[in-house]
Simulated scan of single mutants.
Amino acid sequence: MYDATLSRPGYRVPANTLFAQTMTYVAGTAGLFALGSYLGRNLTGFASLIGFVAAFVCLLAMRATTGRSRAGTLALLGAFGLFMGVSVAPTIAYYAAANPQALWQAGGATALFIGALGSAGYATRRDLSGLSRACFWALLVLILFGIVTIFVRIPHSSLIYSIAGLVIFAGFTLIDFQRLRRSQNIESAPFLAASIFLDILNVFLFFLNIFGRRD
């Protein structure tokens, strides 16, 4: 049960309490993501795009509800997970039909990846703010690279994209778990959960692309 004293101004929440609550939210978001993936398994690419836009809107709306409505923020987090599931559903459905083994391999690799990097990020005392900026700009470059490969044929571009993405999200995972240890505000739990969930999802998709390749 949620303790109202945790959200009192100036209350310093114990790190283990914030960790437990954040990871509970991550698990709930992942569950709704799975539901969205199931519900959207027969949808078209356009519906996938709509789901992605809706998920992004939910993230933006969470900023407006934080500190005003805890229930509203959590509802938006749940909707974010559901819509992300809908947006990724065609990809998961494709691999489930064409190469189901890749899904299990990607899932296992993601668990090991996040477990190792998350533990390192949570334990490190080194300030990772510089890494945060580097990862942000690297992600922009990766997105630009992905756009270029739509129009220009680059040998092994898909593999390069996925490996580079894993390197970048290794950094983001370190950063987000360090933020989880350093945060003193229980109200940050939904945002931390959304950020960690996005780390997990992107890592999973990069691994899925690697294991699902047919050379």
Rank of each mutant, 00 (worst) to 15 (best):
S188Q: 15
Y11W: 11
V148M: 11
T5Q: 04
V26N: 02
G165P: 10
F33M: 14
V167Q: 05
F52R: 00
N209W: 07
L198Y: 12
F136V: 13
Q178E: 04
T91A: 12
S87A: 11
I200T: 13
Q178N: 05
G212R: 09
S162F: 03
S132R: 10
G36V: 03
A164W: 05
A98G: 00
M62H: 09
G81W: 15
A98H: 15
F151M: 03
P14C: 06
F169N: 06
V148E: 04
G31Q: 04
Q178W: 04
A71H: 09
A93S: 15
R181H: 10
T5E: 05
S195L: 11
A61L: 15
Q178V: 01
F197W: 13
R214S: 11
L144V: 15
R8M: 09
A138G: 15
G31C: 12
A75I: 15
L128I: 07
I143G: 03
L140W: 05
L74K: 04
C135F: 03
W137Y: 15
G81L: 07
G165V: 03
P14D: 09
P100C: 10
A138M: 10
F19I: 06
T66M: 08
R133I: 03
T173Y: 05
G10L: 05
D199T: 08
V167P: 05
F136M: 12
S7A: 11
R133D: 03
Y122S: 00
S129R: 15
L159I: 12
R213T: 06
N16Y: 14
D127Y: 08
L201I: 08
V26M: 03
G121T: 01
